[in-house]
Write a protein that binds this DNA or RNA. Structure first.
Length: 110
DNA sequence: CACATGACGTTGA
DNA sequence: GTCAACGCCATGT
């Protein structure tokens, strides 16, 4: 692992950790906040790496569509939805309901 | 060193 | 409005 990359990952983790309960954010929003608008995919990659870290609630991070794209990467396919619902986020068909409301933009609220 | 892959996003048809 | 293709950048082989 390269130090610089770790820094990027660390930044992503920092943002995800600061996501309020009952709120979700998107990979692109995080990438944009970090100034890496074109690295939205890398954010997802970071989540994959963060998969082992308990401090990083990856379940609060969804794609721009509000769809739980990474649910398959969790232990159980339903775990992600379960966690979100447990926090008060309505999820249906692997999609966050009222995504516009629960959406948390670090660039605006942080 | 070059090729293929991926928890995404944007643009064009 | 939906669907397909391209681009971006880090990782793994």
């Amino acid at each position: 692992m390269k130090p610089e990359t770790l820094d990027f990952f660390d930044r992503v983790y920092a943002i995800v950790r600061q996501v309020p309960i009952g709120r979700v954010t998107s990979y692109g929003a995080i990438a944009r906040y970090l100034g890496a608008v074109r690295s939205a995919r890398i954010v997802g990659y970071a989540m994959n790496a963060a998969h082992n870290l308990e401090d990083v609630p990856a379940h609060r991070v969804v794609n721009r569509n509000g769809m739980l794209t990474g649910k398959f990467h969790f232990e159980g396919s339903k775990l992600m939805q379960q966690l979100l619902e447990s926090e008060g986020v309505q999820v249906e068909a692997d999609q966050v309901q009222d995504f516009k409301q629960v959406f948390w933009d670090p660039s605006e609220e942080l």
